[in-house]
Simulated assay, not measured.
Amino acid sequence: MGFFDFLFSKPVYLEDKFFGQLQWLGDKAQTGYSEGKRIFQPTGQVLEFNISAQKTGPTAAHSAFFQWVEAQYPALCGAAGPLITAEFGKWISGFQIQDFEREFTPTFLSIPANAADPLAEWELAFDTVHDQNHTVTVCFVGATPVYGRVDG
C-alpha cells in the first residue's frame, strides 16, 4: 500500500452477527484488526474493542472470548485490583480501591487473534474517578493479570 493509497482509501466495514458493524484496518495481505463498539453486559455501557483477525471478520472464538470476559468480569476485576492498586500507589500515596465498580469503568478490550487459547494475551482498559486524565490498562494472560499501566 502506497502513501496515497493509505490517505485516500475508503474505510472497509464488516457486519458481524455478534459484534455488529466493524471497521477493518489492515494490509493487502489481509492481516490486521477490526474495531467496534457494543454494550458490555456487566456495566450496560458501550465498550470499545479491537479484534486481531483476518479481513473476513471475527470468528466464533472471538465472540466466545467477549462473552467469557463478560461472564468472568467480576473475577477478572478482583484479580486486577492489586495490580491497579500498586500502579496507582506510585501516583497517589496510600491509594486503595474501595468499590471497584464505582471507581473504574471499562472502556476498551483487545481481543487476541488466538482467542481460543487459554494463554492468549489481551488487555482491558478502564477510566477511573481517581484521575480523569488517565486510563488504567491491565494486561492479562488468560485469566491472570500480568501487569498494569497508567496511560494519559
Rank of each mutant, 00 (worst) to 15 (best):
Q72C: 05
S34W: 01
K55C: 01
T128I: 04
K10N: 03
K37L: 07
I111G: 00
R102G: 07
E70T: 02
Q67I: 04
A125E: 08
A80S: 15
A125D: 09
A64E: 14
G20L: 09
H62W: 11
S52R: 08
L22I: 09
A29I: 10
Q23K: 15
A79N: 07
I39D: 09
Y33E: 09
Q21T: 09
Q72D: 08
L14E: 03
G26N: 12
L14M: 05
F19P: 00
Y33F: 15
E70S: 10
T56E: 14
F4D: 10
F88L: 15
F4T: 08
Q96T: 11
G44S: 11
A120F: 06
P82I: 06
A61E: 13
Q54K: 10
L124Q: 06
A60P: 03
K28T: 10
L47S: 03
D27Y: 14
P106V: 05
D127M: 07
F66A: 01
L47E: 03
Y13C: 00
L25D: 06
F88R: 09
C77D: 02
D27W: 12
T105N: 04
N114Y: 07
S110F: 07
S52M: 11
L124M: 14
Q21W: 04
F108Y: 15
K17W: 00
G2Q: 13
H130A: 04
P118M: 08
D5C: 05
Q41V: 13
P74N: 08
L47T: 02
W68Q: 14
H130G: 02
A64Y: 08
F3P: 01
E123Y: 08
P42Q: 07
G78Q: 10
I97Y: 05
L124Y: 03
S34Y: 05
V46F: 11
F6V: 13
E121L: 09
H130L: 10
Q23H: 06
I51D: 03
W91G: 00
E121N: 10
P74C: 04
A80T: 04
L7A: 11
V46D: 11
D99R: 13
N114T: 10
V129I: 15
A113T: 01
L83W: 14
A115S: 14
S9N: 15
G57M: 03
G20E: 08
Q30L: 10
A53I: 00
Q98K: 14
S52N: 13
I84Q: 02
T107P: 02
H130D: 00
T31E: 10
E121T: 13
Q96C: 06
P74H: 06
E103Q: 14
F6W: 14
A60G: 02
V46Q: 13
G94F: 08
Q21I: 07
F104T: 06
R102W: 02
A113Y: 14
K10Y: 01
E101K: 09
I111M: 08
Q45I: 01
S34G: 13
Q72Y: 05
L109S: 09
L47I: 15
E123G: 11
A125M: 09
A116K: 11
F88C: 05
A80V: 02
N50P: 00
D99W: 07
D127C: 08
V46E: 15
E121R: 12
Y73P: 05
A79G: 04
T128R: 05
E101F: 09
K17H: 12
T56V: 10
P11S: 14
E121P: 00
G20T: 11
I92R: 10
F126K: 12
R38L: 11
K90S: 06
